[in-house]
Protein backbone atom coordinates (compact mmCIF):
# COMPACT_ATOMS: atom_id res chain seq x y z
CA UNK A 1 0.00 0.00 0.00
CA UNK A 2 1.34 3.30 -0.97
CA UNK A 3 0.91 5.95 1.61
CA UNK A 4 0.11 9.53 0.86
CA UNK A 5 2.73 11.18 -1.34
CA UNK A 6 5.55 12.53 0.75
CA UNK A 7 5.50 16.28 0.83
CA UNK A 8 8.84 17.90 0.13
CA UNK A 9 10.37 19.52 3.20
CA UNK A 10 9.51 23.17 3.52
CA UNK A 11 12.45 25.40 2.59
CA UNK A 12 14.23 26.86 5.55
CA UNK A 13 13.34 30.45 6.24
CA UNK A 14 16.38 32.62 5.57
CA UNK A 15 17.87 33.88 8.80
CA UNK A 16 20.58 36.40 9.48
CA UNK A 17 22.78 33.55 10.67
CA UNK A 18 22.32 31.65 7.39
CA UNK A 19 23.04 34.77 5.37
CA UNK A 20 26.19 35.46 7.37
CA UNK A 21 27.42 31.91 6.85
CA UNK A 22 26.72 32.09 3.11
CA UNK A 23 28.46 35.42 2.54
CA UNK A 24 31.25 34.83 5.03
CA UNK A 25 32.36 31.53 3.55
CA UNK A 26 36.18 31.82 3.61
CA UNK A 27 36.59 30.85 -0.04
CA UNK A 28 33.98 33.35 -1.16
CA UNK A 29 35.45 35.99 1.16
CA UNK A 30 38.92 35.47 -0.32
CA UNK A 31 37.60 35.89 -3.87
CA UNK A 32 35.51 38.98 -3.08
CA UNK A 33 38.14 40.65 -0.91
CA UNK A 34 40.86 39.87 -3.47
CA UNK A 35 38.86 41.72 -6.12
CA UNK A 36 37.96 44.62 -3.81
CA UNK A 37 41.31 45.16 -2.10
CA UNK A 38 43.27 46.88 -4.92
CA UNK A 39 40.45 49.37 -5.50
CA UNK A 40 40.07 50.13 -1.80
CA UNK A 41 43.81 50.60 -1.37
CA UNK A 42 44.11 52.82 -4.46
CA UNK A 43 41.10 54.96 -3.49
CA UNK A 44 42.34 55.21 0.11
CA UNK A 45 45.82 56.26 -0.97
CA UNK A 46 44.57 58.80 -3.54
CA UNK A 47 42.01 60.39 -1.22
CA UNK A 48 44.35 60.47 1.78
CA UNK A 49 47.20 62.08 -0.17
CA UNK A 50 44.79 64.57 -1.77
CA UNK A 51 43.11 65.48 1.51
CA UNK A 52 46.34 65.79 3.48
CA UNK A 53 48.05 67.88 0.77
CA UNK A 54 44.92 70.03 0.47
CA UNK A 55 44.84 70.63 4.20
CA UNK A 56 48.56 71.20 4.47
CA UNK A 57 49.06 73.50 1.49
CA UNK A 58 45.79 75.03 0.32
CA UNK A 59 43.43 75.21 3.31
CA UNK A 60 43.41 78.59 5.05
CA UNK A 61 44.99 78.97 8.46
CA UNK A 62 42.63 79.38 11.39
CA UNK A 63 42.18 82.94 12.66
CA UNK A 64 42.82 81.82 16.25
CA UNK A 65 44.97 78.69 15.97
CA UNK A 66 47.06 79.73 12.99
CA UNK A 67 48.82 76.88 11.16
CA UNK A 68 48.42 74.42 14.04
CA UNK A 69 44.90 73.82 12.72
CA UNK A 70 46.55 71.77 9.96
CA UNK A 71 47.19 69.05 12.56
CA UNK A 72 43.41 68.58 12.54
CA UNK A 73 43.53 67.06 9.05
CA UNK A 74 45.35 64.03 10.40
CA UNK A 75 44.15 64.08 14.03
CA UNK A 76 40.39 64.12 13.44
CA UNK A 77 40.22 61.43 10.69
CA UNK A 78 42.47 59.23 12.86
CA UNK A 79 40.04 59.76 15.75
CA UNK A 80 37.10 58.81 13.52
CA UNK A 81 38.89 55.61 12.50
CA UNK A 82 39.83 54.84 16.11
CA UNK A 83 36.18 54.90 17.14
CA UNK A 84 34.74 53.46 13.91
CA UNK A 85 37.29 50.66 14.03
CA UNK A 86 36.18 49.74 17.52
CA UNK A 87 32.57 49.60 16.31
CA UNK A 88 33.75 47.14 13.64
CA UNK A 89 35.67 45.17 16.26
CA UNK A 90 32.61 45.00 18.54
CA UNK A 91 30.27 43.97 15.69
CA UNK A 92 32.66 41.23 14.52
CA UNK A 93 33.05 40.05 18.12
CA UNK A 94 29.26 39.94 18.57
CA UNK A 95 28.84 37.90 15.37
CA UNK A 96 31.65 35.60 16.44
CA UNK A 97 30.07 35.06 19.85
CA UNK A 98 26.47 34.60 18.71
CA UNK A 99 26.87 32.75 15.39
CA UNK A 100 30.32 31.31 16.17
CA UNK A 101 31.60 32.16 12.73
CA UNK A 102 35.39 31.76 12.45
CA UNK A 103 35.66 34.55 9.89
CA UNK A 104 34.17 37.04 12.35
CA UNK A 105 36.71 35.93 14.97
CA UNK A 106 39.55 36.40 12.49
CA UNK A 107 38.21 39.81 11.42
CA UNK A 108 37.99 40.97 15.06
CA UNK A 109 41.52 39.77 15.72
CA UNK A 110 42.86 41.62 12.65
CA UNK A 111 40.88 44.86 13.08
CA UNK A 112 42.41 45.43 16.53
CA UNK A 113 46.00 46.28 15.43
CA UNK A 114 44.72 48.65 12.74
CA UNK A 115 42.48 50.38 15.26
CA UNK A 116 45.33 50.57 17.76
CA UNK A 117 47.59 52.32 15.23
CA UNK A 118 44.94 54.90 14.32
CA UNK A 119 44.22 55.49 18.01
CA UNK A 120 47.95 55.99 18.64
CA UNK A 121 48.05 58.52 15.79
CA UNK A 122 45.06 60.30 17.31
CA UNK A 123 46.72 60.47 20.74
CA UNK A 124 50.17 61.55 19.46
CA UNK A 125 48.88 64.21 17.07
CA UNK A 126 46.44 65.42 19.72
CA UNK A 127 49.34 65.86 22.10
CA UNK A 128 51.33 67.75 19.44
CA UNK A 129 48.30 69.99 18.88
CA UNK A 130 47.65 70.43 22.58
CA UNK A 131 51.10 71.76 23.46
CA UNK A 132 50.94 74.99 21.38
CA UNK A 133 47.19 75.52 21.96
CA UNK A 134 46.69 74.47 25.59
CA UNK A 135 50.25 74.83 26.82
CA UNK A 136 50.47 71.17 27.82
CA UNK A 137 51.18 67.87 26.10
CA UNK A 138 48.60 66.00 28.14
CA UNK A 139 45.79 66.63 30.56
CA UNK A 140 43.65 64.03 32.29
CA UNK A 141 40.36 65.36 31.00
CA UNK A 142 37.48 63.10 30.05
CA UNK A 143 38.00 63.07 26.28
CA UNK A 144 41.74 62.42 26.36
CA UNK A 145 41.48 59.83 29.11
CA UNK A 146 38.64 57.92 27.44
CA UNK A 147 40.59 57.78 24.16
CA UNK A 148 43.62 56.50 26.08
CA UNK A 149 41.34 53.82 27.56
CA UNK A 150 40.27 52.98 23.97
CA UNK A 151 43.94 52.50 23.06
CA UNK A 152 44.42 50.19 26.06
CA UNK A 153 41.30 48.23 25.04
CA UNK A 154 42.80 47.67 21.59
CA UNK A 155 46.15 46.65 23.09
CA UNK A 156 44.39 44.38 25.61
CA UNK A 157 42.47 42.73 22.78
CA UNK A 158 45.70 42.13 20.84
CA UNK A 159 47.40 40.71 23.94
CA UNK A 160 44.46 38.43 24.76
CA UNK A 161 44.19 37.22 21.16
CA UNK A 162 47.85 36.18 21.27
CA UNK A 163 47.80 34.75 24.78
CA UNK A 164 46.72 31.25 23.69
CA UNK A 165 48.69 28.74 21.63
CA UNK A 166 45.54 28.08 19.63
CA UNK A 167 44.14 31.40 18.30
CA UNK A 168 40.67 29.87 17.99
CA UNK A 169 40.53 29.40 21.77
CA UNK A 170 41.38 33.08 22.31
CA UNK A 171 38.46 34.32 20.22
CA UNK A 172 35.78 33.99 22.90
CA UNK A 173 37.50 35.85 25.78
CA UNK A 174 38.76 38.48 23.34
CA UNK A 175 35.22 38.97 22.01
CA UNK A 176 33.86 39.40 25.55
CA UNK A 177 36.55 42.00 26.26
CA UNK A 178 35.69 43.83 23.03
CA UNK A 179 31.97 43.92 23.85
CA UNK A 180 32.52 45.11 27.42
CA UNK A 181 34.88 47.78 26.11
CA UNK A 182 32.23 49.06 23.69
CA UNK A 183 30.67 50.93 26.62
CA UNK A 184 33.62 53.31 26.26
CA UNK A 185 32.44 54.52 22.83
CA UNK A 186 29.51 56.69 24.01
CA UNK A 187 31.74 57.91 26.84
CA UNK A 188 34.30 59.15 24.29
CA UNK A 189 31.63 60.71 22.07
CA UNK A 190 29.75 62.52 24.82
CA UNK A 191 32.64 63.18 27.20
CA UNK A 192 32.91 66.75 25.94
CA UNK A 193 29.22 67.30 26.74
CA UNK A 194 28.98 65.41 30.04
CA UNK A 195 32.08 66.88 31.64
CA UNK A 196 33.87 70.19 31.56
CA UNK A 197 36.84 69.30 29.36
CA UNK A 198 39.78 71.14 27.89
CA UNK A 199 39.03 69.39 24.60
CA UNK A 200 36.67 71.33 22.36
CA UNK A 201 33.11 70.00 21.77
CA UNK A 202 32.00 68.40 18.49
CA UNK A 203 32.40 70.72 15.50
CA UNK A 204 31.79 68.61 12.39
CA UNK A 205 28.85 66.50 13.57
CA UNK A 206 27.08 69.30 15.41
CA UNK A 207 23.33 69.45 14.86
CA UNK A 208 22.54 72.10 12.29
CA UNK A 209 25.51 73.51 10.44
CA UNK A 210 29.05 72.29 11.17
CA UNK A 211 31.10 74.76 13.19
CA UNK A 212 33.96 74.66 10.68
CA UNK A 213 34.39 76.82 7.61
CA UNK A 214 33.74 74.94 4.37
CA UNK A 215 37.32 75.60 3.14
CA UNK A 216 38.60 73.60 6.10
CA UNK A 217 35.72 71.11 6.20
CA UNK A 218 36.22 69.89 2.60
CA UNK A 219 39.81 68.61 2.92
CA UNK A 220 38.89 67.17 6.33
CA UNK A 221 36.08 65.08 4.81
CA UNK A 222 38.28 63.99 1.87
CA UNK A 223 40.98 62.80 4.27
CA UNK A 224 38.34 61.13 6.44
CA UNK A 225 37.04 59.17 3.43
CA UNK A 226 40.61 58.30 2.44
CA UNK A 227 41.43 57.03 5.94
CA UNK A 228 38.21 54.99 5.90
CA UNK A 229 39.29 53.22 2.72
CA UNK A 230 42.85 52.75 4.03
CA UNK A 231 41.47 51.29 7.27
CA UNK A 232 39.15 48.96 5.34
CA UNK A 233 41.94 47.87 2.99
CA UNK A 234 44.31 47.11 5.88
CA UNK A 235 41.60 45.24 7.81
CA UNK A 236 40.71 43.20 4.71
CA UNK A 237 44.35 42.41 3.93
CA UNK A 238 45.00 41.30 7.51
CA UNK A 239 41.79 39.23 7.59
CA UNK A 240 42.96 37.48 4.41
CA UNK A 241 46.25 36.80 6.21
CA UNK A 242 44.34 35.36 9.18
CA UNK A 243 42.39 33.02 6.89
CA UNK A 244 45.60 31.84 5.20
CA UNK A 245 47.29 31.27 8.57
CA UNK A 246 44.31 29.21 9.71
CA UNK A 247 44.52 27.19 6.52
CA UNK A 248 48.26 26.65 7.06
CA UNK A 249 47.60 25.43 10.61
CA UNK A 250 44.95 23.01 9.31
CA UNK A 251 47.33 21.69 6.62
CA UNK A 252 50.13 21.21 9.15
CA UNK A 253 47.76 19.44 11.55
CA UNK A 254 46.59 17.15 8.74
CA UNK A 255 50.17 16.38 7.78
CA UNK A 256 51.07 15.63 11.39
CA UNK A 257 48.07 13.29 11.69
CA UNK A 258 49.02 11.24 8.62
CA UNK A 259 50.76 7.94 9.47
CA UNK A 260 54.45 8.17 8.83
CA UNK A 261 55.80 5.80 6.18
CA UNK A 262 57.74 2.98 7.78
CA UNK A 263 61.09 1.90 6.26
CA UNK A 264 59.62 -1.47 5.24
CA UNK A 265 56.65 0.18 3.55
CA UNK A 266 59.02 2.44 1.67
CA UNK A 267 61.06 -0.61 0.59
CA UNK A 268 57.94 -2.31 -0.76
Amino acid sequence: MDGPPATPPAPKAPTLGNALHRFANPGRFMRLSGALLPWLAAAGLALSVTGLAWGLVFAPRDWQQGDTVRIMFIHVPAAWMAMGGYVGLAVASFIGLVWRHPLADIAAREIAPVGAVFTAICLITGSLWGKPMWGTWWVWDARLTSVLVLFFLYVGHIALSNAFDDPERAARPAAILALIGAVNLPIIKFSVDWWNTLHQPASVTRLGAPGIHVDILQPLLVTGLGFLFVFAALALLRTRTGILERRARALMAARAAEPAATPSAVAV
Binding site: L52, I71, T125, L128
Partner: peptide, 26 residues
Protein backbone atom coordinates in the same frame (compact mmCIF):
# COMPACT_ATOMS: atom_id res chain seq x y z
CA UNK B 1 54.09 76.95 9.65
CA UNK B 2 53.68 80.25 11.42
CA UNK B 3 56.28 79.27 14.00
CA UNK B 4 54.58 75.94 14.73
CA UNK B 5 56.66 73.75 12.42
CA UNK B 6 57.88 71.69 15.39
CA UNK B 7 54.29 70.56 16.01
CA UNK B 8 52.74 70.40 12.52
CA UNK B 9 55.44 68.47 10.63
CA UNK B 10 56.00 65.78 13.29
CA UNK B 11 52.23 65.20 13.35
CA UNK B 12 52.22 64.42 9.64
CA UNK B 13 55.49 62.46 9.77
CA UNK B 14 54.35 60.26 12.67
CA UNK B 15 50.84 59.77 11.29
CA UNK B 16 51.91 58.85 7.78
CA UNK B 17 54.89 56.87 9.08
CA UNK B 18 52.79 54.70 11.39
CA UNK B 19 50.22 53.96 8.67
CA UNK B 20 52.98 53.10 6.18
CA UNK B 21 54.72 50.86 8.73
CA UNK B 22 51.45 49.05 9.44
CA UNK B 23 50.78 48.63 5.70
CA UNK B 24 54.27 47.20 5.08
CA UNK B 25 54.08 44.82 8.04
CA UNK B 26 50.57 43.72 7.04
Amino acid sequence: MGGHAAFVWPSYAIGVGLILALAILS
